[in-house]
Amino acid sequence: MAETIDFFLNGELVSVQCPENETLLYLLRERVGLRSVKEGCGVGECGACTVLLEGRAVNACLLAAGKVRGRRVTTIEGLSPKGRLHPLQEGFLLMGAVQCGFCTPGLILAAHSLLEENPHPSREAIVQGLAGNLCRCTGYHDIIRAVKWAAKRMPERE
């Protein structure tokens, strides 16, 4: 049964018709057409589908669409309004943390969530915070460097 689901996507109110229990991943990719949200496994093991729900990283492949009703969802598009790169995006570029780039949107969003909670994470905290996001290309080496780089440049919050 299709239901109407209203939520905020990257700051804008959107209204989508879909079954309550459809995954947020399917909703975003197929109904909204946001292809930046990736599917790597569909079972919560790879983090490619990571989006932010009220600022917290979640796996969109595990979340029922009905759960986002009235809430704020952020995808990679939401980090760079008007094409201005977020420090994490810049860090990923400069540190060479992008190889095939399939894991990249999910990893940047997971790192965003991590830095919200812990603005100056140690290497261990980064590793713990991002261990749910697989990358098969980079060996994580440059991703860790990118997150450290960005942490130093994040705008200070109140």
Binding site: S36, T75, I76, E77, G83, L85, F92
Partner: peptide, 13 residues
């Protein structure tokens, strides 16, 4: 910087 990396961090690829 790798060709195509910018599009990738922006989610355009």
């Amino acid at each position: 910087i790798k060709i195509g990396a910018r599009e990738r961090v922006l989610g355009l690829t």
